[in-house]
Amino acid sequence: MSPLLTRRRVLAAGALGATVLALPGCDALSQDPDVEAVLRSAEALTMDAQRLLLRRRPLAREFSSADISPTFRVNGTQAPDSEDYAALSATGFTDWRLTIDGLVDRPADYSLADLKTLPARTQITRHDCVEGWSAIGQWTGVPLGILLQQAGLQPKARFVVFHCADELEQTLDGSGRYYESIDLIDAFHPQTILAYAMNGADLSVGHGAPLRLRVERQLGYKHAKYVMRIEVVERFDGFWGGRGGFWEDRGYEWYAGI
């Protein structure tokens, strides 16, 4: 037999073998921590590339009222399942207070009425779920930057953490509590608002009453609903799973720009 034929056979068998072996091996690869670390390296690349593209801080597209989705899908928590929240909701959130604390000079509490006296921004934007669907809605609220300026950031401040009223996953240790975090670049973007109204009406319970974050330019899970407390921190690895958010702790990217 000619050596050429042998080499050909080896090549062909090798190609076939690699294909057959690769498919079932993928689940094991997906669960390997080293593979995960390599795959996660693309996340930093994505964030750096997007920050470069967004360095002039452009606005996400704003639509006209004719473009608003007839039905805006309620996602995640439909209604927080706690007595405290039920009591707040029963009185139209008049007893609700938003706390701002952490690395700020002037920690503060705001009632819903207080927030409504501050300068407001209204924007009709597209909400993009990580699953793939989109809905367009109109949001009115206070730019987060105004609240942060009123509170006065300390030099070590780097991230803004949003603590929410809902537990999306029932757990014994409370780690199913929803939370989110963004950095100061996104926090001070003009379209980053704390919305108390949607499509011209008070925010409904399904969409996060009384207050939800809008951080346009990122995926839906960053837009925390039922915000109760805003904590300014230097790092977020001390909270729950340490990755900066409920879904981040469950494998999703912290920077959700794609």
Binding site: L53, A60, R126, G132, R217, Q218, L219, G257
Partner: peptide, 13 residues
């Protein structure tokens, strides 16, 4: 693929 990214959409509407 990039058009599905809310970040890229803001940069390149």
């Amino acid at each position: 693929g990039l058009t599905m990214s809310p970040g890229v959409d803001a940069a390149i509407p």
